[in-house]
Computed example of a mutant assay.
Amino acid sequence: MMTVRSGVASDTGAVRTRNEDSALAGAGVFAVADGMGGHAAGDVASRLAIAALQRLADRPGLTPQDLRAGLAAANREILGAVRRQPERAGMGTTVAGLGLVRFAGTEHWVVFNVGDSRVYRFVDGTLAQVTVDHTAPGPRAGITRALGTDPAPEADVWMFPPTPGERFLICSDGLPLEVDNAAIAVVLAAEPSAQRAAETLVRRAVDAGGRDNVTAVVVDHVPAADDERYEQTAPPRSVR
């Protein structure tokens, strides 16, 4: 069995006046959503996405299909919010995350993303980006997939077995905008606490310029006794 410890931190940054990011560190689901739309209420879109995933966080026997269904539900709820309040037309959100699921009778990680929020995996001193940014190349670069669109976007999903000692970082694009991968790896290697690692990464991004909202969720997989399930440094929670 596994013990999972997590930490979460978020900041508006040094330039923006509103934090449109939301995050979740639940018992079995961890995610970051980066809202888009500004006056069109990107913060509402990100909050709706996280709320849909939070409903899955304590579900026993979570499956990859549950996570896909949760993302589809989030997309429907964002579109429904726009229908109820047309002034919010154009709001949307990226989302990236990590879920602990049952597959073929054993625990597996599922990594998912829509947009350019990211999931990194840090193991044996090596940092690797698991997700692929959904962005257009060139000078007119922009996000090519986001929740809040019709038809619904297709989420990228990866599934793999857990490795004791691995650490994951889920973040909005405000973090890699200011802190490169080498510096991220240094923090993840040096800070044993998931919560302090998340706080340090967010603080460094703000100190480096903070041109965007910045949010980080750090998830650690550590060995657990057979009679333990999950342990966290704080209760399941969401932030925005």
Rank of each mutant, 00 (worst) to 15 (best):
V202I: 08
P162M: 11
S172L: 11
N113V: 08
L24T: 08
D173T: 11
A194K: 00
R102L: 07
E231S: 07
A216H: 07
W158S: 12
H108D: 08
A89V: 10
A155I: 07
R229A: 14
R5Y: 12
G90A: 05
R118Q: 07
V186F: 02
R118L: 06
S22F: 12
A155L: 11
D34Y: 03
Q195D: 12
A45D: 06
R102V: 02
L201A: 11
R229K: 06
R102W: 00
T149C: 01
L188A: 09
P139V: 09
A194W: 00
N213V: 01
F122N: 09
H134A: 11
A146M: 14
D156V: 04
L201G: 13
G35M: 02
P162W: 09
R102T: 05
G209L: 07
D227K: 01
D207A: 15
V114I: 15
G28V: 01
A49P: 13
D156Q: 10
V15A: 13
V219R: 04
R204H: 14
R83N: 02
M2K: 08
A182H: 03
R203E: 15
T12H: 02
N75D: 11
P161K: 15
D226E: 15
R18A: 13
R88P: 02
D116F: 11
S22K: 06
F122Y: 15
L48N: 06
N213L: 00
Q85C: 04
D207W: 02
A189R: 10
E154D: 13
L53K: 09
T135H: 03
L79W: 02
A190F: 00
A152Q: 07
G92D: 01
G61V: 02
T94K: 09
R196E: 10
G97C: 10
N113I: 08
A9F: 00
A57E: 15
R18K: 14
W109P: 03
L53C: 07
A190S: 14
V130N: 00
D66T: 05
P137W: 01
A155G: 06
D116V: 11
N213I: 00
A205R: 07
F122V: 04
V222K: 03
I143M: 09
H134Y: 09
Q85E: 14
D11Q: 10
E228K: 03
A31T: 03
W109V: 08
F103Q: 12
R59H: 12
Q195C: 05
V119L: 02
V217W: 05
A41Q: 11
F160L: 11
E166I: 02
V15T: 14
N75W: 04
V179L: 12
Y120I: 12
V214E: 12
D220A: 05
L147N: 11
L62P: 10
T163R: 13
G148S: 07
D207G: 04
M36K: 01
I78G: 04
R68Y: 04
F103Y: 09
A128V: 13
R196P: 00
Q232M: 15
D150V: 08
